[in-house]
């Protein structure tokens, strides 16, 4: 199975899902014109990755801003990660936010509540 690498743009996040290490990175801004088109390959990749039965998955999510439809897809990604957990994979979600970005921190907490996955909410200093 190949890694999933999608370069980030001003409107879409950078995606770097590594099969070997189980590190799934989602970084940047997510306001795609067509969220369905952008996220469908991501969800399909995760569906296929379940069959690899990885020991551990660390999802590193560092989003500056995302639109409403992206928020639904992030929820979908977390649901897929829940499937990995049910299948016996150790799953951890690292949710990154800029230290003064209260909204993004609270959003991470909401996703943690609704997904039932272990989250680490990590702040970082503005560049």
């Amino acid at each position: 199975m190949d890694n999933l690498i999608i370069e980030g743009t001003r409107q879409t996040p950078e995606i770097n899902f590594d099969v070997e290490s189980g590190i799934l990175k989602l970084e940047g801004r997510s306001i795609p014109e067509n969220t369905f088109e952008f996220f469908t390959p991501v969800l399909n990749w995760l569906d296929a990755y379940v069959n690899s039965s990885p020991d551990k998955i660390v999802a590193k999510i560092n989003l500056e801003y995302f639109n409403t439809s992206s928020s639904k897809y992030i929820l979908e990604i977390l649901k897929k990660l829940k499937v990995f957990k049910v299948e016996g994979t150790e799953v951890l979600v690292e949710w990154y936010y800029e230290e003064d970005d209260e909204e993004m921190m609270e959003t991470g907490e909401d996703y943690e509540d609704v997904s039932g996955l272990p989250f680490e909410i990590i702040s970082f200093e503005e560049e």
Binding site: S71, D101, D110
Partner: peptide, 20 residues
Amino acid sequence: VDQVKIITKISDRLQKKLNK
């Protein structure tokens, strides 16, 4: 319903961020 609740909440919050 759970989805609508969470998405609305997040969307409102990100709107606040945008306004800021």
